[in-house]
């Protein structure tokens, strides 16, 4: 049984503190996976964040039967971990293109070219908006994380959040519009 499975079992048995232990483990695994993947990929390849999450799932938990409750915990933590990795990566990239703090960068972590059409600024804006959303409307924020960063289909996200598929779709419609306005700000409103 892997550490992650053990923690998931503990969470299931009601150990609330176990949740906190999950994030760093998954974070580390995802970062390792991503860095190693990039060193193996041919030049110019990009990484699919959601595929990484999925691969981490297979590696840490495998294909043995897991309860949905368990998967929910895993994917929530994985989505959050992946979000942090993407944002750190984007921030680092933005700093490093300015040449800022050149020597203070963790050199063990390679830059991860991500398969996304968002540019650095949009990505960071998305993250900032999402942070606002976490305090203002946690359920919607969870949905965005699970759908965007863990790549789960809305049907599955609905299952994890314990809402109907229709509700999940409505949340997503709202989340998209609200985030878009946060990211693109005043200009879109006035144009």
């Amino acid at each position: 049984m892997s550490d992650v499975t053990r923690i998931l079992t503990a969470i299931e048995q009601g150990d609330a503190q176990a949740t906190e232990k999950l994030l760093p483990l998954i974070y580390e695994e995802l970062r390792l996976l991503a860095t190693r993947k990039m060193s193996q990929e041919p030049l110019g390849q990009t990484l699919q964040a959601t595929a990484l999450v999925h691969e981490a799932y297979l590696r840490l938990i495998g294909t043995e039967d897991q309860s949905w409750d368990n998967r929910g915990h895993f994917f929530k933590a994985a989505a959050e971990a992946m979000r942090r990795i993407l944002i750190e990566n984007a921030r680092r990239k933005r700093t490093h293109k300015r040449g800022g703090d050149m020597g203070k960068v963790d050199l063990k972590v390679a830059d991860l070219p991500m398969d996304t059409y968002l540019d650095l600024d949009d990505l960071i804006a998305l993250d900032e908006a999402l942070t606002k959303l976490v305090t203002a409307d946690a359920a919607v924020a969870d949905l965005v994380k699970l759908h965007c960063f863990a790549g789960l289909p809305l049907v599955t996200v609905a299952d994890i959040l314990g809402v109907s598929t229709r509700t999940a779709e409505r949340y997503w419609a709202f989340a998209k519009t609200w985030l878009f306005n946060e990211i693109c700000g005043e200009e879109e409103k006035s144009l």
Binding site: A49, T50, M82, T116, P153, K176, T177, W178, L179
Partner: peptide
């Protein structure tokens, strides 16, 4: 504002942001 920008938002989030969806 939200209603006005809804279709633009749909364009913006047209595809998966970070790779494709995981099948359920």
């Amino acid at each position: 504002t939200l209603l006005r920008t809804h279709s633009k938002a749909n364009d913006f989030f047209k595809g998966p942001l970070f790779g494709s969806e995981i099948p359920e």
